[in-house]
């Protein structure tokens, strides 16, 4: 049995162990690889910077717990950048788990930066209804949000909500999303294009290709794509965090995948060559 045949019949659990080792080593001992900031992330950062001081960001959280590794660092860094410029954030979720997933991390950033809940940011919780709710948030935001925040506090008791009666009152709309069909594309057609509200998104690496046409056409003013996008954003805002730490591990995992693809293909070619040279009718 050749080495290629041995490799191809190897128990897949050996590959799993190798992956664990390859990912764990750079986390234990970081390599400190340089991070180059891409145009999508730079545009996202510039879009947030363009919001006038004291302005409001409307933030839709449309991902579940499966994507926290990629999207939580994006949300945390957004909060850091916004709070550093005294921007206000009104957030809600069109996805059942979204509000719960981000509640602890956003509260931690708010408390750390000396911000007050209800004054500097608010979490309105899960707002079902999809496009209908989006439309309602434009016509009458309070009604679209069912008049209460995530904790059941009436919106009239929250200073941040005073004077905010429509999504059009926001200076920027951001959707952090990782679900299908894309809620960001719905916000684009229902709110952003319809009322000229600037919009940016954060998404997973796997969904970035689907959203890329809307960034290329200038409809999304910026886009954070996956853990790489989060790492670039952390680097740009000088807030090193879990995404930057994860870049070395991601590099190692990508190299492992490429090495395995190469080995698999070399084995495949060897196998074809061997079969081509074998006498007709077998004879092994």
């Amino acid at each position: 049995m050749s080495i290629w045949e041995k490799l191809s019949s190897l128990d897949r659990r050996y590959y799993y162990v190798v992956l664990i080792l390859v990912v764990a080593l750079p986390i234990i001992k970081p390599w400190g690889l340089p991070i180059r900031v891409g145009s999508t992330t730079e545009d996202f950062w510039k879009t947030v910077e363009a919001v006038p001081e004291g302005g409001t960001i409307a933030l839709a959280i449309d991902y579940r717990s499966d994507c926290i590794v990629e999207l939580n660092p994006q949300v945390v860094t957004l909060f850091r950048q916004a709070f550093a410029r005294n921007l206000k954030i009104i957030m809600w979720s069109n996805v059942d788990e979204g509000a719960n997933v981000t509640e602890p991390i956003t509260r931690a950033v708010g408390n750390e930066m000396g911000k007050t809940y209800g004054v500097d940011w608010v979490n309105l919780g899960y707002k079902p209804g999809g496009e209908v709710t989006m439309k309602k948030m434009v016509d009458n935001f309070w009604e679209g949000a069912a008049y209460v925040d995530m904790q059941g506090t009436p919106l009239q008791d929250l200073p941040i909500m005073q004077g905010f009666s429509s999504l059009r009152d926001a200076d920027l709309l951001i959707d952090m999303m990782a679900v299908v069909p894309s809620p960001a594309q719905n916000y684009l057609k229902m709110v952003s294009i319809a009322y000229g509200l600037p919009m940016a998104i954060g998404t997973t690496a796997i969904q970035a290709p689907t959203e890329m046409p809307f960034y290329s056409s200038g409809e999304y003013k910026g886009m954070l794509a996956g853990l790489r996008g989060a790492a670039e954003y952390e680097f740009l805002t000088r807030n090193p965090g879990p995404a930057m730490m994860g870049m070395d591990a991601q590099s190692a995992a990508h190299i492992l995948v490429i090495v395995l693809i190469a080995l698999g293909n070399i084995g495949h070619m060897m196998d074809r060559k061997k079969r081509a040279g074998a006498p007709i009718g077998g004879g092994s």
Partner: peptide, 13 residues
């Protein structure tokens, strides 16, 4: 990620 690694050797030909 584990399935991708396993598939990388066996399927991406």
């Amino acid at each position: 990620s584990f399935y991708i690694v396993s598939a990388a050797y066996r399927a991406f030909r």
